[in-house]
Amino acid sequence: MKYELTCINCPMGCRITADYDGKEVTNIEGYTCRRGLLYAQSEITDPTRMLTALMALEGTHVPLPVKTDRPIRKALLPKALEQIKSTRAKRPVRLGAVVIENVCNSGANVIATAERL
């Protein structure tokens, strides 16, 4: 399958094209440095993202900001978001407290990024 991406490492924003058969990335073209090459390989074979979101907090309409404590697979983002939306945190919440363990079996915990004491 043909892939077309924009490198995110610097303002050049090189347009990189490549082929991927599910096993190996081939014909990587358009990058101008090593960082671009590495980005293309990981972005095609295993794209990951940090997820930051808002979680409901009991007893208030003010939301609790949360994040995954490590990047998770991009394909898991919608499911992880659903789980965060359907969870309600309880006070007191310390910064860094785990509010969901191993979200969607991603290996990442969802943690609080602010304190609500």
Binding site: M50, T52, L54, P65, K67, L95, T113, A114
Partner: peptide, 19 residues
């Protein structure tokens, strides 16, 4: 600014704004 990307230069980690 609850998104991540803060502090990469200073702390070599990606923090959210509140963190």
């Amino acid at each position: 600014c609850i998104h991540n990307g803060f502090g990469l230069h200073t702390f070599q980690e990606e923090l959210t704004g509140p963190e």
